[in-house]
Design a binder for these strands. Structure first.
Lengths: 164, 164
DNA sequence: TATTGTTATACTCTATAACTATA
DNA sequence: TATAGTTATAGAGTATAACAATA
């Protein structure tokens, strides 16, 4: 049995029918940039996650692999800073990538506190596969954004600057 | 002790220094729309979450409260559909909002399977407070997007249509 | 049979704080 | 003292599947 409310009756308005086709009023949400930004990102990312997940790599790992690929020997602190995550979140992430054979972790010779991160051959191959998916996916975004791509990216970069 | 790799030595490249000021190469990520969309949304949302959290309401709850406010009597299935969440995620969400006194849940008279959702007085007041914060926050986004707001929102809506 | 909501369960992602080792 | 990384722990958020009640 459901635990219904035994609270004082509120001022009742007409209830909406359950029909899923019934349009739902979003109120001011409809004009909020932040709301649409969130919904668009959430929708697009889930779609990408489905695809990249098929390759056996969790969606959030793609960016990490890319950063390591382009910055061989990068430390975990710098990686975390780059993808905006705490170092305590980076440790399990890199351990998983190591466990699945995509990266190698080596203690720095010069500074034995540091762990240097490198892609393995398997990691490079996996990244190549992911890159192809990412390209297709981003091409779909590009088709929507159209000729204004640079302007669109510029707005997104300025949003990061404003709120970081 | 750290569990270092005893794997075959890889082809070693020059390691990056640990200096956090060292610029990190993002590679193709830099030109990916999806990447910037994700980073911008993540950054802006965290900022909003800090603010709305101060009001004792979890960030993801704002949209739900808004939808309920504008659609009194809406059912949980319709709410879930609107904010793109499974019904099993909606139950704990609405139970929490009920527990904290922001909404009321009543079994529909006409269809006793349904739970109708209504804001309480306290919920309306809380939503008013949140709305003010959201307006300020969205004004900052609006300042960045500038005169192209409609065009920008249109792109975001089309992204949702493309990937949903 | 289909739908609405609930529950059990599990998984991802994340951060804070306390810790070790190194510098 | 400061920094790099680790670990313990916790919390938010989410989904799948099986379920009960109702339609």
């Amino acid at each position: 049995m459901r635990d219904d409310d035994k609270y004082s009756r509120p001022q009742v308005r007409a209830a909406k029918p359950a029909d899923p086709a019934t349009p739902v009023d979003l109120g001011e949400l409809e004009s909020y940039i932040g709301f649409h930004l969130r919904v668009a990102q959430d929708t697009a990312f889930r779609s990408f996650a489905r695809v990249s997940g098929l390759n056996g790599v969790k969606p959030g790992r793609f960016a990490a692999l890319m950063v390591i690929a382009h910055n061989p020997g990068i430390g975990q602190a710098a990686l975390g800073h780059t993808i905006a995550r705490d170092k305590s979140s980076i440790t399990p992430l890199t351990q998983e990538l190591q466990r699945t054979g995509l990266i190698e972790r080596r203690t720095s010779v010069g500074d034995r506190r540091r762990v240097e991160l490198y892609l393995t051959r398997a990691g490079e191959q996996q990244l190549d596969r992911l890159r192809r998916f990412a390209s297709e996916y981003d091409a779909r975004l590009g088709a929507i954004v159209g000729a204004k791509k640079d302007e669109f990216l510029d707005i997104l970069r300025r949003i990061v600057k404003e709120f970081e």
